[in-house]
């Protein structure tokens, strides 16, 4: 698997610092899992985080905080309190893939189906799977928000290049494109998107009322 398209450096940095929203973080994690280059860059941002943390102005702890802490570790008090895994959150793609078999694919347009993975509140990025049949030409469109797309299987091309498994595409309202799926294999993508698709071509404007992702 040759990965040619990577997340923007700002996206990667936000991911390393932990300030990326959950849906986008999920997609970026899935890419980083299989991209050594991005993985090393994320680790660099984490190292930066460590240095910034060390040099941060300390906030005084309350009276007795040390005693409480000692009590907590020595007597297992509050044993069910959550602890965080001290590692980068990565995505087990098998888990994602297993959801292919659960729940129905919903019809989005000719040759295109989707499956919601989250129900995000309005204004937040949603996570869903997109499946397009071989040779499908998607309507020309742009986005009112931003969209992160990770290709899991198959491939598509548009003016921005060809995207295959492991590639990650970022698009926003400045990008107008018309992806065409390769012949021969179905294309499945993991998508985090806020805002809506805006269809721009003539056919698109006719179809727009029906597009509700």
């Amino acid at each position: 698997m040759t990965i040619r398209h990577h997340p923007d450096i700002a996206t990667l940095g936000s991911f390393g610092f932990g300030t990326l929203d959950k849906a986008r973080a999920f997609v970026v994690a899935a890419h980083v899992t299989s991209c050594a280059k991005c993985k090393a860059m994320v680790r660099g941002f984490e190292e930066t985080g460590g240095v910034v943390l060390e040099d941060l102005e300390p906030a005084p702890l309350s009276m007795g905080a040390g005693e409480a802490m000692l009590d907590m570790v020595l007597h297992g008090a509050d044993a069910d309190r959550r602890t965080a895994e001290p590692r980068l959150a990565e995505v087990d793609l098998r888990t994602v893939l297993s959801t292919f078999d659960e729940g129905p694919w919903r019809w989005l347009g000719p040759g295109v189906h989707y499956k919601p993975l989250t129900t995000a509140p309005a204004g937040e990025a949603r996570l869903f799977l997109l499946k397009a049949e071989p040779g499908t030409s998607l309507p020309e469109h742009t986005h009112s928000g931003t969209e992160l797309t990770l290709i899991l299987r198959g491939a598509f091309s548009h003016s921005g290049g060809r995207f295959g498994p492991g590639d990650l595409e970022e698009a926003d309202s400045s990008v107008e494109h018309q992806p065409v799926v390769d012949d021969g294999d179905v294309c499945i993508c993991l998508v985090a998107m806020d805002g809506q698709l805006r269809l721009t071509g003539f056919m698109g404007r006719l179809l727009q009322p029906f597009v509700r992702l």
Binding site: G18, R87, V91, L117, T119, L127
Partner: peptide, 26 residues
């Protein structure tokens, strides 16, 4: 950082995505 992600946004999380976020070794 991971606790901040969990702690500060817990209420905003979609449970579904959380369940699928597996933590592996980097």
């Amino acid at each position: 950082r991971n606790l901040r992600i969990d702690g500060l946004r817990r209420e905003k999380l979609a449970a579904n995505a959380q369940a699928q976020l597996d933590v592996l070794d980097l």
